[in-house]
C-alpha cells in the first residue's frame, strides 16, 4: 500500500492504461505497436490485480499470484507473436498492417 494514494487513483490509472491499449490496438498501423498496445492492456490488468489484492483483500494472495501468471503468459504470447511477425517480415519485408491485408471480405 502506498500512503496518500487511494485505490481509486490507481484504478483510474489502470483504466486509462487499458483504454490506451484498446485505442492503440485499433488505431496503430504497425504490428509491433499493436503488440505493445496489447501488452499495455495486460499490464493494466496486472496492476489491477496486484492493487486490488493489496488494498481490498490483503489477507489472501490470489491477485498477486494471478498477476505472476499473467506476466508469464504474456511473455509466451509476445514470444510467439514476435516469432510470427518475424516470419511475416521475412516474406514481405514489412510489419505494417496495411501490407497484411491481402485477404478481403
Amino acid at each position: 500500500m502506498i500512503a496518500g494514494i487511494s485505490i481509486y487513483e490507481i484504478l483510474t490509472v489502470t483504466s486509462i492504461l487499458f483504454f490506451i491499449g484498446v485505442y492503440g490496438f485499433l488505431t496503430r498501423k504497425n504490428l509491433i505497436s499493436i503488440l505493445m498496445s496489447v501488452e499495455l492492456i495486460l499490464n493494466a490488468s496486472v496492476i489491477n490485480f496486484v492493487v486490488i489484492n493489496k488494498y481490498l483483500y490483503p489477507d489472501m494472495l490470489q491477485g498477486v499470484i494471478f498477476s505472476i501468471f499473467i506476466i508469464a503468459v504474456a511473455a509466451a504470447e509476445t514470444a510467439l507473436a514476435v516469432a510470427i511477425i518475424i516470419n511475416l517480415y521475412r516474406q514481405i519485408a514489412s510489419v505494417e498492417v496495411k501490407d497484411t491485408e491481402i485477404m478481403k471480405y
Binding site: 499493436i34 496489447v38 492492456i41 486490488i52 503468459v73 510470427i84 516470419n87 514481405i92
Partner: peptide, 30 residues
C-alpha cells in the same frame, strides 16, 4: 504469406481478447 498473416491476426486478436477478458476478471475480483 497468407498463413503468417493468419497467425499474426489470430494471435493479436486472441491477445487482445484475453487482455480484455482479464481486465474484466480483475473487476469481478475487485
Amino acid at each position: 504469406r497468407i498463413s503468417s498473416e493468419a497467425g499474426i491476426k489470430l494471435i493479436l486478436s486472441a491477445a487482445l481478447a484475453s487482455g480484455v477478458s482479464l481486465f474484466g476478471i480483475s473487476l469481478v475480483y475487485a
